[in-house]
Design a protein around this nucleic acid. Structure first.
Lengths: 211, 211
DNA sequence: TGTACATCAGTGAACGCGCGTTCACTGATGTAC
DNA sequence: TGTACATCAGTGAACGCGCGTTCACTGATGTAC
């Protein structure tokens, strides 16, 4: 396949630039991010990215959208490993959300705490809506009240906030003692915390014992 | 006091620069923040800030530290307005935390989601520790298990995460329907959500009715 | 009260740098016939 | 199967801009005597 030989046409520069952008983001942070550095990292002239993404916000918007796709994938991966009862499932969704933030802290920050991507872009909105909408569906399945029409119910706000708060704080190293625990141990603690905000069905037991 | 007349020495340029920096932060965001723009906004030559803050990270570090002081003040203001029982008090602390994030979204982001301040600087660490430590004390008073020696307990992680998650998501406009409610109405919803994570004392009732 | 002097705060010109953007170009690819 | 040509992807030099930093300076303030 002529792997080693440099070719004039890259083949899949778009994907290569996204990968380079993520690496650059991890190395430099959102705030120092530049298109030139990404092009250099991808081994390409600094004018090349314009053909695929237009400008810096365009590249960051595409990267953020890809991030939301991976956030959703992290959620569903966890769900597959969990018991099938609705409470376990929504807890798994939350653990997947935290997984993503811990594995990709810079990307997570780009997606949720940066003005540089265009958050109104249809692709990004759709990807974000899919990931968060999935959490809402899981919460609804666990007995929560979750209306979709732009109204955030207490059940949904509680679930999203607890999961997002944990993901943000742990991902940023603000809860180092929790971050550095063995994964299984950490997951048990996180599951117990997430369980606190789940709706308790009238006749049912708590989804997780308290203390 | 010769107010209108421009003087060579400013009087309190340090404070004026901090105010200008906050305004600039609100207008431009952390990512486009520059020392020259701050100096221009304060009506001073662009080399002047160096006398007070050294460089850009120095200024942003001071601003973030001031932010934590105000975060703490928002917490205690709410506590003074709340009933004195421990559960009401810790909920008030949380509401104050959210108040701060809603009133100063750009500053909140600087404090928690930016690499530009030097988060290892003693002043900033102290200010941050005071604000978060206060939340921990309130949680402990409400019956939570909260050790201070760098260990985050589930009680503390839950309280911090729910409050931080709400503050972050609402402050960024991700929960617009909640943000745009009448303040009293919003507070009632938030109080109910925060109450979900409070420890339930063995013989005691829930601090807040569910649903 | 007055004078001399050190210190401090702020000025403004100059610098070098990395950035995004533009543009004429060139090499590769795909398609029509 | 071969040829011509349009289209596309990537190059590299050039540009103007705002940035942080440096530096000799100057105006104001405070203090010693």
């Amino acid at each position: 396949m002529d792997e080693g030989r440099p070719r004039y046409h890259h083949g899949d520069l778009r994907a290569a630039l996204l990968a380079a952008a993520e690496a650059e983001l991890t190395a430099t942070g959102v705030e120092g991010f530049s298109l030139r550095a990404v092009a250099k990292r991808a081994g390409v002239s600094h004018a090349a990215p314009a053909h695929h993404f237009g400008d810096t916000p365009g590249l960051l918007t595409a990267l953020a959208a890809e991030g939301f796709g991976r956030l959703l994938a992290c959620q569903t991966r966890r769900e597959r490993q969990a018991p099938v009862d609705p409470a376990s499932q929504v807890i798994a969704t939350g653990l997947g959300y935290v997984d993503f933030a811990l594995s990709h802290p810079a990307l997570f920050r780009l997606m949720f705490a940066s003005d540089r991507p265009d958050h109104e872009a249809p692709d990004l909105r759709a990807a974000g809506g899919a990931a968060i909408g999935h959490l809402a569906e899981q919460m609804a399945a666990a007995g929560g009240t979750v209306r979709h029409d732009k109204i955030v119910t207490p059940d949904m706000a509680a679930a999203w906030a607890i999961v997002h708060g944990l993901a943000t704080l742990i991902g940023q190293g603000q809860m180092a003692s929790l971050r550095d625990r063995a994964p299984d141990d950490r997951d048990a603690v996180l599951a117990g915390i997430i369980a606190r905000v789940l709706p308790r069905t009238p006749g049912g037991a708590d989804p997780e014992p308290r203390r």
